[in-house]
Amino acid sequence: MEPFTKLTAVAAPFDMANIDTDKIIPARFLRKLRTAEAGYGPWLFYDLCFDADGNQRPEFVLNQTPWRNTGIIVAGPNFGCGSSREGAAYAMLDWGIRAVIAPSFGDIHFANEIQNGMLPAILPEEHCAVLRQQLKDQPGAQIAIDLESQTITGPDGKTYRFDIEPIYKERLLKGLDDVGLVLQELPAIEAFEKRHYEKMPWLA
């Protein structure tokens, strides 16, 4: 997994609350295989990007010229609620988005972002709202994120401190893979299993 340390990128404002993972990637694309050549980028926010006839919706933020190179999304509360589909994280990552700033996240999607080396940064809604307004006022403006110091610098140069659990911060900074982190504990796992299955032999 690629470490996440710093990111300065064009940021796009998403005003709506409760952006669910069905919106981030509609279910019909989840059957696609994801390979190095064919990523999930083309399916990102597909039904917001295109109308029923396959025409681009010009009003959708990522379709507008200043936001073609978006690397960061600033959203409303409960971003990524709903389905557990990791395709939502794949689609953002493959499109080029590596961080989402929001007041809160759906739990499973939050974990999926971390597992893919993406940063889900939590800022209070009032700060998210200020950032979204600035991004609308200055289309294409950039936001700078520094994970080490847990800071986000808005287009006007104002800096906000964001929250992230130390355990997730460490994984992202070092690009750690969870399977490796679990297998370090193999002797403890085996000892646990012995005790556990003695107590519940019907599970073994």
Partner: peptide, 22 residues
């Protein structure tokens, strides 16, 4: 509880997950 594909891979490979207590 529901998990994404990477965590699912971990459960298959290790039968364990690192979890923050909810």
């Amino acid at each position: 509880f529901g998990i994404g594909a990477t965590n699912l891979k971990q459960v298959l490979a290790t039968q364990c997950l690192w979890q923050k207590k909810p």
